[in-house]
Amino acid sequence: MALNLVILFGSVRSDRQGIKAARFVQRQLTERGHNVTLVDPLEYKLPLLDRMYKEYAKGTAPEQLERLATLYRAADGFVIVTAEYNHTPPPALVNLLDHFLEEYFFRPSAIVSYSGGSFGGVRAASHLRDTLAELGMASIPSSFPIPKVQAAFDDAGVPADAAYLKRFNRFASELEWYAQALKTARQAGVPY
């Protein structure tokens, strides 16, 4: 069954390499039959958080926040693609996440982490789990770390090593299971 999945990408660096990983994720999930939207902070240009979406009077939030709120409310799950800056997620990702709250509730998240080195961003992914749980979109148990992202994919997101496809299929299957289970549960009602 097709799911509505949103990829949240968190880098705004001019030489960003992680966009290749985000494109890989987008392509793979689309090929699995899902409706996938990639949210790139360079396109949305959100200001540094001053006021959350929910703090605006109805109909007065900036247009880009309204678009994201509508997208998030329709989502069955989120894939967070994070770099690792000083062992933590990048500021652009945290800012993107923090503008919303209730729109994430009772939807799973899955973490794709990357780095230019050999650890694949796993330390940032570890920190991100706490944030995602607090936002109401706890992450699935598996993660998808990508070491040396600059060589892992071409600019279109095609992997240099076919092993990424096998690893991703298992990761995506787990996300699909959680997203479908929580979608069914949301339709029956939420705790509050």
Rank of each mutant, 00 (worst) to 15 (best):
H99Y: 14
H99E: 01
E103C: 07
E103S: 09
Y104C: 03
Y104T: 00
Y104P: 01
F105D: 08
F105V: 06
F106Q: 13
F106L: 13
R107W: 11
R107D: 10
P108R: 01
P108Y: 04
P108T: 02
S109V: 10
I111T: 04
V112T: 10
S113L: 11
S113K: 12
Y114S: 06
Y114N: 10
Y114I: 09
G116P: 08
G116K: 10
G117I: 09
G117C: 09
S118E: 15
S118V: 15
F119P: 01
F119G: 09
F119V: 12
F119H: 13
G120D: 04
G120W: 05
G121C: 11
V122A: 08
V122W: 08
R123D: 09
R123Y: 11
A124R: 06
A124D: 04
A125L: 07
A125Q: 11
S126A: 15
S126T: 15
S126H: 14
S126M: 13
H127K: 11
H127T: 09
H127A: 12
H127V: 05
L128W: 04
L128S: 07
R129E: 08
D130M: 12
D130F: 13
T131A: 14
L132A: 07
L132Y: 09
A133D: 13
A133E: 13
E134Q: 12
L135W: 09
G136P: 08
M137N: 14
M137H: 12
M137S: 11
M137Q: 14
M137A: 09
A138P: 12
A138W: 08
S139I: 02
S139G: 08
S139M: 02
I140V: 15
I140G: 02
P141L: 06
S142E: 14
S142H: 12
S143F: 07
F144S: 04
F144N: 05
F144M: 09
F144W: 05
F144Q: 04
P145A: 07
I146Y: 00
I146S: 02
P147R: 03
V149S: 00
V149R: 01
V149D: 00
V149I: 01
A151T: 15
A151N: 14
A151L: 14
A152R: 04
D154P: 00
D154F: 01
D155S: 13
D155H: 09
D155Y: 06
A156W: 03
A156T: 12
A156N: 13
G157S: 08
G157F: 07
G157K: 07
G157L: 08
V158G: 02
V158P: 00
A160Q: 13
A160V: 10
D161H: 00
D161K: 01
A163Y: 06
Y164E: 12
Y164F: 15
Y164P: 03
L165F: 05
L165W: 01
L165S: 06
K166L: 13
K166F: 11
K166C: 06
K166I: 14
R167H: 08
R167F: 03
F168S: 01
F168V: 02
F168P: 01
N169E: 15
N169I: 04
R170S: 09
F171T: 01
F171A: 01
F171S: 00
F171Q: 00
A172R: 00
A172E: 02
A172N: 04
A172W: 02
A172V: 05
A172Q: 03
S173R: 12
S173M: 11
S173D: 15
E174S: 03
L175Q: 03
E176R: 05
W177K: 10
W177S: 10
Y178H: 08
Y178E: 01
Y178W: 15
Y178K: 04
